[in-house]
């Protein structure tokens, strides 16, 4: 059966706390932390971007699966922060991991669900027997405008999944996509920071698509919340996925392993893929996992995964996502953060 044969994640080592951002703009950090359910977020180093994080996640996945990179026939990278407007992210990633020249390459964009789009397409390319192995990556170094609510969560991270048919560590039992034209969050051409429609991003956008997608895929598979070991939803903040999960009947125990946002923020295209990676790090053979992404604009991709016995051997060779989150980290103050993210106008920029 087609599924994930290897996976890995990459989380940058730099962090900024909500307190440091709130203090800069004169807001009460306690209120923001309670409202967003976020403590701190990851920050990419000045020499990191979507390409560098994608390469690191992909290299770990290649190593973890013991896969010859020359057998990977597709490299698809989903992101809303591709370093170039014109020039693919995927070619650099493919070259760096040794997958060139016999590979197909494409960059995906769909706000925060570009990563799950890449997963959806790679799964189906393998299922259609067009490819033996295909690599899907969700990665972002997302930007929030100074002083905007997004600044508390917009963060960085990457997750890579190699899809194949031989000895998958998680079989894909079902997929489903749900979408509509909903202008809740956008960034126009040549604009540096995205904009959003405030509270409109909630009920008619995130919750409508995530809940409909989850309900439909559970109905399609005949499964209910209690059948799953874990559920992972897109995490624009810490509160939305918890509320969505509870509305669908999931318990906090089913949600917390994949809920990374309170500690690393919203990694955009990396969000639900990183949550899935964190769940795969601990899931037992036979566990069912529901994953539902969300991308503004708007849509959700749903996946039902079943973990296999092959996961134990594969994951011994990778760095676990929570170990990266709680591992060595360097805290930045707002000034350092502004310098790292290119928010300060200077002659050098």
């Amino acid at each position: 059966m087609t599924g994930i044969v290897s996976y890995a994640s990459y989380v940058p080592r730099y962090r900024i706390k909500v307190e440091d951002i709130a203090a800069q703009w004169g807001f009460d950090a306690t209120v923001i932390k309670k409202g967003l359910f976020v403590q701190e977020k990851s920050v990419p180093a000045p020499d990191q971007d979507t390409i560098t994080m994608s390469v690191e996640a992909a290299r770990r996945a290649v190593f973890g699966g013991g896969i010859d990179p020359e057998t990977i026939q597709a490299v698809y990278v989903g992101s809303e922060s591709h370093p170039y407007a014109v020039k693919p992210t995927g070619t650099t990633v493919a070259e760096a991991i040794g997958a060139t020249p016999d590979a197909h390459c494409a960059d995906f964009e769909f706000a925060c669900k570009a990563g799950s789009e890449a997963m959806f397409v790679t799964l189906n390319m393998v299922e259609a027997q067009q490819m033996s192995y295909a690599l899907a990556i969700g990665a972002d170094t997302s930007q929030g405008a100074p002083g905007d609510a997004l600044e508390y969560t917009a963060s960085a991270g990457a997750a890579a999944f190699i899809m194949g048919k031989e000895q998958p560590v998680a079989e894909c039992l079902e997929t489903y996509s749900h979408m509509s034209d909903t202008p809740d969050f956008w960034r126009r051409e040549h604009e540096f920071y995205p904009q959003h429609a405030g509270r409109f991003t909630g009920e008619p956008a995130y919750f409508k698509h995530v809940l409909n997608c989850a309900n439909f895929i559970m109905k399609k598979t005949g499964l209910q919340a209690s059948d799953f070991g874990y559920a992972v939803f897109h995490q624009p903040n810490g509160k939305f996925p918890l509320r969505a999960g509870k509305k669908l009947g999931f318990t906090e125990d089913q949600l917390k392993q994949g809920l990374l946002c309170p500690y690393i923020g919203n990694t955009y295209s990396g969000s639900s893929p990183l949550g899935l990676a964190a769940v795969l790090d601990v899931a037992k053979p036979g566990d069912l996992i529901l994953m539902v992404s969300y991308g503004s604009g708007a849509g959700s991709d749903g996946f039902v995964w079943r973990v296999t016995k092959d996961i134990e051997k594969m994951r011994k060779k990778i760095l676990y996502t929570w170990d990266q989150i709680h591992g060595e980290k360097f805290y930045l103050d707002y000034g350092q953060y502004a310098k790292f993210r290119g928010k300060i106008r200077s002659n050098a920029s």
């Binding site: 020499d47 990191q48 971007d49 390409i51 560098t52 690191e56 290299r59």
Partner: peptide, 16 residues
Amino acid sequence: EFRRIFDDGSSGVINY
């Protein structure tokens, strides 16, 4: 690790 080394300005090629 794989990193950006430098940019050829804001419109030039990024060197990795």
